[in-house]
């Protein structure tokens, strides 16, 4: 079973390890022998043009797409050995996801959206409420926490999404073009928060982007082209 405390590190300092990942959709190869290692707390930017396989790689990392060959290890555990229920648990407990289009639950308020993953892992109510409040405060949305996503601006939504991605203290934060739907100012704000919060929470960050400015917050930049990584 996977450990509940996601910031434990049975991976010996390695948050994520990908070896020789290949993935095809039908006849079309999307990932061709991808190798990648992410240390705990490390921030890595993954850049590449559209169609290079970035989003597919992210889906393989969080177990939504199975790989054709190769290994995905997260905190020392091989994803290929996990059953469906365990993969779901993995996502709940160890991964935080930030989408380009925010993907907030439209019928829950900002507060409830952030609270949601904490409920999923069964966090006690008091602890949960406290954490949500703090996170919302840290993203500067205390006054907007009771609003539904429809009533929030793009930047505000993404900040909520960021808070949601971190509430359960995941080991790994995956951000897929987090500033893609934002203007420059909001985008910079979000990037800054990404860096601050990932350092604060000790979370490894894999940031997928095609925007060079975004890479400033990262320790390392890796390029991807035609399904292969280029350092």
């Amino acid at each position: 079973m996977f450990p509940i405390a996601s910031n434990e590190d049975p991976g010996n300092g390695i948050a994520l390890n990908l070896s020789s990942i290949t993935k095809s959709f039908g006849e079309v190869p999307v990932l061709r022998g991808v190798d990648l290692e992410l240390k705990s707390g490390e921030r890595v930017a993954l850049m590449g043009p559209s169609g290079s396989g970035k989003s597919t790689l992210l889906n393989c990392i969080c177990g939504i797409e199975p790989v054709d060959s190769g290994e995905v290890r997260m905190a020392g555990r091989l994803l290929g050995d996990l059953k469906v229920g365990d993969l779901e648990r993995l996502r709940r407990e160890s991964i935080g996801y930030v989408f380009q289009s925010f993907h907030l639950l439209p019928t829950l308020t900002a507060f409830e959206n952030v609270e949601f993953p904490a409920q999923l892992i069964g966090m006690a109510k008091e602890e949960r409420i406290e954490k949500v409040k703090r996170l919302i405060e840290s993203v500067g949305l205390t006054d907007r926490s009771t609003h539904l996503p429809d009533a929030l601006s793009g930047g505000e939504r993404q900040r909520v999404a960021l808070a949601r991605a971190l509430i359960h203290r995941p080991a790994l934060l995956l951000a897929d073009e987090p500033t893609g739907s934002l203007d420059t100012e909001n985008g910079n704000q979000v990037l800054k928060l990404l860096k601050t919060l990932s350092i604060e929470h000790g979370v490894a960050l894999l940031l997928v982007t095609h925007d060079h400015a975004s890479t400033d917050i990262c320790d390392r930049v890796i390029s991807m082209r035609d399904g292969s990584l280029i350092s």
């Binding site: 779901e88 648990r89 993995l90 996502r91 639950l105 999923l120």
Partner: peptide
Amino acid sequence: VRTWTTLRHLGFSNRQ
């Protein structure tokens, strides 16, 4: 669809 995709990413199980 979007909501279900999100939930899946959030680790919402099939049972849930």
